[in-house]
Design a protein around this nucleic acid. Sequence first.
DNA 1: GACAGATATCTGATATATCAGGTATCAGAT
DNA 2: ATCTGATACCTGATATATCAGATATCTGTC
Lengths: 219, 219
Amino acid sequence: MEAQLNLLSLREQVYTYLRKQMNLGVLLPGSTINIGKIAKQLGISKTPLRDALIHLEIEGFVTILPRRGVRVNIFELQNVKHAYNAIGMVEASVVMDCFDKIESSHILKLEELNERMISAIEKNIFERLFTTNLQFHDVYLDISDNELLKKFILPIKYRLYDFPRQNYISEWEKRNCKEHERFINFLKQGNPKKAATVLKDTHWSFEYQENFIKKFYNM
Amino acid sequence: MEAQLNLLSLREQVYTYLRKQMNLGVLLPGSTINIGKIAKQLGISKTPLRDALIHLEIEGFVTILPRRGVRVNIFELQNVKHAYNAIGMVEASVVMDCFDKIESSHILKLEELNERMISAIEKNIFERLFTTNLQFHDVYLDISDNELLKKFILPIKYRLYDFPRQNYISEWEKRNCKEHERFINFLKQGNPKKAATVLKDTHWSFEYQENFIKKFYNM
DNA sequence: GACAGATATCTGATATATCAGGTATCAGAT
DNA sequence: ATCTGATACCTGATATATCAGATATCTGTC
């Protein structure tokens, strides 16, 4: 059974498409999106495109300038800093609040995902790295039943991922995985505070990661 | 010059109108919004109404059920708990991160706003209480240049405000202002950690505020 | 040349028409 | 009585047409 039902609305498909275009560097920060043109290119009406753009605007990807155009938001060092700060804050907080719900199955999952990341980095296979990294962090994020938190940082993580960047930096990714390891070890030791600190002050610390961030985003 | 230029787009006006309808209990949680009917009532086309609803959906106020209707999201104790938790987390974090930027002018502003709230509560004038309370918290939130944080919690605060509730509870509001005072005092003493703790573990602690919350929202 | 007003063009915003998926109801077969 | 398929209706989704604000360009006056 190879048939796939296309269950996504046009609006959702356009949202994903535009995100992808930003990820591929086709829609660059600061550039304008012409609703009429894109709709024609995609062979659709302006309506679902507008719907998708409203969604993207609320999530911070674009700014709709009424009757003037749609601008892809610039993404500069300050934005990265804010993103890192917000993510670190939420993730550290979740670890502190949910530590007593973390079980050995979660630890195993964390270790498995981190191993998968390390393996991919050594083979210079980066296609799935972002996704696996998301899954890694989601292991503990999903323990929190406060869906507001994840809903807050996920678009921010996508923003970090979807904006133009250089190639992946092996050295940085390896270091990130080392930080994952340290995080896991503190969890295993029953020390949520130290684990949270790894997230907040190292892994998601803009200051700590600044040099690699600048290289990665060519800033 | 009494003329006011209507600079808001229809979409924005509809967004505000719908928020107000929820606030007034006209649009109750769990109820459905019929796009065709509302558009007719408002004398507008469905388009700006749809636009506004997309916005409201992303912020958590409604759920658009494709081709079936639009539902006002229910708002139960669990949602309040998550809201309080998220706000407390962000506000405490901002205080810790930005403490060195808090000046005496900020303290004065905090005291003035809290006085204004106390005065209004004593006179049983609650119309502006939410707004003044927002301003109070915004004094230190605005110090952070991370616009992601405020952008995250503001719709959550509006959700807390916009859903059906009982009359304001003087006793609770007075207690809230007392907590504000304690918060201010810790700031004055140069103790950001204690100040942040007031926010996280008292003022925005669901557990601490649970009884009043239940009364306020009749849950 | 500078400025102001008129006009043209651009592009998103809104209105209207039509479509399409979801649900309810009906009719026929077992 | 139950089940299945057909049909009708509902309602948001999408397409198309038109509008309206923003900007660029042109023209006339000083």
